[in-house]
């Protein structure tokens, strides 16, 4: 379960729409972090045994464990590569962004 992203965030158009002082609703994301990435993690589900090492160490929390297979939220993955580096099964490959993935 990942937080919802407000893709077309509407900034205040009038004085009345301003937040009261510097306080607002928590958990508002108006843009993504995928642009930071040069390398993209790709999970080989044939090798993954869902040990969750990648899930626990991900600094961005982009791996989801709630479905039978782990899933990566590529909107927020920055491509740090901790998941691939720490994976005991070597089930995650870091692939250059933009290269074709089979």
């Amino acid at each position: 379960m990942k937080p919802k992203v407000v893709r077309e965030y509407k900034f205040p158009q009038t004085k009345e729409e301003m937040p009261f002082g510097p306080g607002s609703e928590a958990g508002v994301l108006i843009d993504v972090n995928s642009g930071w990435r040069t390398l993209m993690p790709i999970i080989d589900y044939g090798k993954c045994n869902k040990c969750l090492i990648c899930w626990i160490f991900c600094p961005d929390g982009v791996i989801s464990k709630e479905n039978p297979q782990l899933e990566i939220d590529y909107d927020y993955c920055k491509g740090c590569g901790i998941c691939a580096y720490e994976c005991p099964k070597k089930a995650i490959a870091m692939v250059k962004e933009g290269e074709k993935v089979e």
Binding site: N33, L52, F57, P59, S64, Y76, G81
Partner: peptide, 24 residues
């Protein structure tokens, strides 16, 4: 244990550097 931790993220979409230990 890692297995019984919730999948729900309460800290998400932040702008910390790649591989930030503090974010973990």
């Amino acid at each position: 244990s890692i297995k019984n931790l919730p999948d729900q993220e309460l800290f998400y979409g932040h702008k910390a550097c790649q591989g930030c230990g503090g974010a973990i």
